[in-house]
Design a protein around this nucleic acid. Sequence first.
DNA 1: ATAAATACGATTAAAATTGTCGTATTTATT
DNA 2: AATAAATACGACAATTTTAATCGTATTTAT
Lengths: 132, 132
Amino acid sequence: MLKITRKVEYALIALRHMQAKDPEGLTSAKEIATHYGIPKQLLAKTLQQMARDNIIQAVQGPTGGYRIRANLGKISLKDFFERLEGPLGMMDCFFESDCIQINACNIRVPIQRINDNMRDMFSKMTLMEVTQ
Amino acid sequence: MLKITRKVEYALIALRHMQAKDPEGLTSAKEIATHYGIPKQLLAKTLQQMARDNIIQAVQGPTGGYRIRANLGKISLKDFFERLEGPLGMMDCFFESDCIQINACNIRVPIQRINDNMRDMFSKMTLMEVTQ
DNA sequence: ATAAATACGATTAAAATTGTCGTATTTATT
DNA sequence: AATAAATACGACAATTTTAATCGTATTTAT
Ligand code: SF4
Ligand code: SF4
């Protein structure tokens, strides 16, 4: 309940690692995976996803790797979470309309309000707060 | 990711239903289950759990049911969530110590800070905000 | 040519959530 | 006393989501 995914954690670990290291130089998926004990393939896919989202830049070939591309102080945690995991809502009816209870539901409005609070909170935090 | 459980939703629906109705009278699990299309057994177990936690009061026998016992304005959402689902943390290391990354992890402290923010937020909201 | 890296869809494995079953107990009603 | 309608609750099963792996292709420095 209310947990972030491993994928997001791995992404954050990688970003912080790259930022702490030489922000200009390249870091391979292998280096991060072995250093933190993260499954390499899974981390690689996550890094690739971040590369597609222009959060990091990928360089192929041997001596290749990734480096941070975006300004981490300008990406909110909400945006980051949503880029990696899709729409951010505490309840199904926020992004799907096939909840069986949706017609009779008596908590939809109040729960939306709470969800707004949560999204607001993550909108006000940036990636930088995690990575530095 | 960051979703509340169905169990919590069902509990909230039930509480709101009971509060909107006669707060003195009894409401059966069956009534709520059929009215909102919630699996009866699952709802019953959730109501029983709330009864054990003294949030509601259970009355057995035919004509039995549940009524609200606690002051919903004095129970925070954080406490409510934790009574139903256990410790509330975005990441495993908040309540378990067997995360493989825990020693090398470079985001544990910042993620704890974010988690504190989330818990704070839910600490400042009460059940009443959902049920009324 | 080789090797080391990224790229990525498909598949499998594991875990968490959600729902059901079976049985016991309580108690108002008849 | 018998019945029926309700709560009580542990065990189990089904479903869904998350996590991890596999296989293959592409890029590029050496
Ligand atoms: S809030 Fe109500 S409608 Fe929305 S997902 Fe939950 S039960 Fe369904
Ligand atoms: S923050 Fe780090 S130590 Fe905590 S659960 Fe996530 S990976 Fe493990």
